[in-house]
Design a binder for these strands. Structure first.
Lengths: 339, 339
DNA sequence: CTGAAAGCGCTAACAG
DNA sequence: CTGTTAGCGCTTTCAG
């Protein structure tokens, strides 16, 4: 076996070739004779040699590290996304350096600087607000960035989201078709494009049928606040149906309704969420929701980012992926409803 | 502002000092006159300079990167741990490079090699089986490793776990005190020390009261298998109480009991889990469980690892942290029970 | 305290 | 195809 770090130089000596010959054997585009390859591989195996990624990064300028900024790992949507993101990247020879950001912002600037210090090849920002200055900073540093599950007005930023506006509309159509007219909305954090788009689509579709939001409360994407929002909303003139900006909060809403306010869901009130996190499918919630196609969102995110990294092709792209309404049992199902 | 990467050389020129002077200003242990520091900082700020972590890593031999191997992000215990781990490390100047491992093993070897390629300063392995050869490989490479939430017989491996054996005992005592005698156990993956220790403690405490396991089924720490295990266990001569090896499965067990088999929990059957994940506290489950003190486990893991990295002090340590039984409503509460 | 010089381990021309 | 020669950006002796 080996001791500590083995260098290409040591392998070269053992194989009786030059150090650069060793390098070539391990460099994708380079060419070496079968004979050299064999000698080198043999020596390397005996020594337990593996190329030093950092040294390679220094000279090549490519670290094969992707910085990932995340915030809310408590919302089940993110661990799932993180796992897929990491796997997809791993498969394509990249690895993920993780950075936790409190959405308290403020420190987000320093987080980006820290990431840049590692000479990452690209950055994925999951559900964190990105200022234009920051994205500008990354562009200046030559590091492509793509937003995951969040989009920004800035047309210079690449972003991948599900079609939140269309999703909001689907929920409205569904609730309306079920005959609901007194409809409430529990909002997420206003700084998030997902919150704004979902609500906009929802309200727009309602309006087309001359229905206005019966009530609205703020949940900020936080369970505890969703609980308070529910209490407030049902304190007087309760709605017949509630659309909650994401599943994470919808779970808290359902629990509060059932165990604190003694409502039956869906008998007394219909509840619909957004995301289709694993818990939405658990029998206790059986939540009707709009699915965000995590796998396709991830695939697109990775494709865009690697394309920008590997082909210099720097035109930002913004992709929106349609997600289906998953009809389960937390809301009345309109008669004759299908799909 | 700036364009692309600024080097210490450029800062040096602008500040009118040598490149090494700039380096010293950014090197913790080094000394420079206030005058130099000021000039350098000023020039650096104007240029937007930040030291290249990779270059620093090359020469210093310290990358300040910690490799983290994880597998089951679906079990809520892990995202939480990951978040805390990353935050704790970030705070101490390290960053986390993430590697997903399928517990299908097999590829775990290659994952470790990949990690080593990045010249990480240390490795944290969360709930993944580690062979002695692998740990030996890391030791040979001079990279300390600590197991998180898993322990191995190998006394050379540092490991941090909660006291799973004691936890199992607590559950047994609780169930016994409630008067249960027909008690079932739904096991996790047998390869995990957590599974084995929890069961061993549980069975031992039962035996002390002359009670044997009434039934046992395998859930493998997977929800779908836990559902099947529940069906099988309750198909004939159902137990009065079930201890499930972790909360993730316990959730599936409760749902299956309630919505498929029409049992009332806890009226017809008591269910107790292990971990105290966020969902255990959700009203729908209100799960009685043994808490794994994630924060303390993380703190200890980080302390041990950094100690080994920074002080060469290589004696492996194995820490076990006691976790309390959190009594909620999914199991009968013995009369006069307190704490 | 400060500058000059020597690399860390590797890739990328460049002649042969 | 192969060896030689330059560095990548930074830390670290080593004289001064």
């Amino acid at each position: 076996m080996s001791t500590l770090k083995i260098t290409s130089q040591q392998v070269a000596e053992r194989a009786g070739v030059s150090q650069s010959a060793v390098s070539r054997v391990y460099t994708p585009g380079a060419s070496s004779s079968k004979k050299t390859v064999d000698k080198v591989r043999k020596a390397a195996a005996e020594l337990g040699y593996r190329p030093n990624v950092l040294a390679r990064a220094m000279v090549s300028g490519k670290s094969r590290i992707i910085g990932l900024i995340v915030a809310y790992l408590e919302n089940q949507f993110y661990p799932e996304a993180l796992e897929r993101l990491s796997n997809a990247l791993q498969q394509r020879g990249y690895h993920v350096l993780i950075f936790m950001a409190k959405q308290t912002t403020g420190n987000i600037d320093s987080v980006v600087e820290e990431i840049l210090d590692y000479q990452v090849d690209g950055i994925i920002v999951a559900s964190v607000a990105m200022s234009s200055e920051l994205s500008e900073r990354c562009r200046a540093a030559g590091v492509p960035m793509v937003l995951f599950n969040r989009s920004q007005d800035d047309p210079n930023m690449s972003a991948v989201t599900s079609d939140n506006y269309a999703g909001g509309r689907k929920v409205a159509d569904f609730l309306l078709a079920a005959g609901h007219r007194k409809i409430g909305y529990i909002a997420g954090w206003e700084g998030a494009s997902t919150q704004r788009d979902r609500e906009a689509g929802f309200v727009a579709a309602l309006k087309e049928e001359d229905v206005n939001l019966h009530s609205r409360a703020k949940g900020e994407f936080v369970m505890a606040k969703a609980v308070e929002a529910t209490r407030k909303m049902f304190a007087e003139d309760p709605p017949e149906a509630v659309f909650v900006a994401n599943d994470h909060m919808a779970i808290a809403v359902i629990d509060t309704l059932r165990f604190e306010l003694n409502y039956k869901v869906p008998d007394d009130v219909s509840v619909v969420g957004f995301d289709d996190v694993p818990a939405a499918g658990w029998p206790a919630y059986n939540l009707t929701t709009v699915r965000q196609p995590a796998n396709r969102m991830v695939t697109n995110t990775v494709d865009i980012l690697l394309d920008q990294i590997e082909n210099q092709q720097s035109e930002p792209r913004r992709i929106t992926i349609d997600g289906p309404l998953i009809v389960r049992g937390s809301a009345h199902i309109p008669e004759g409803w299908n799909t």
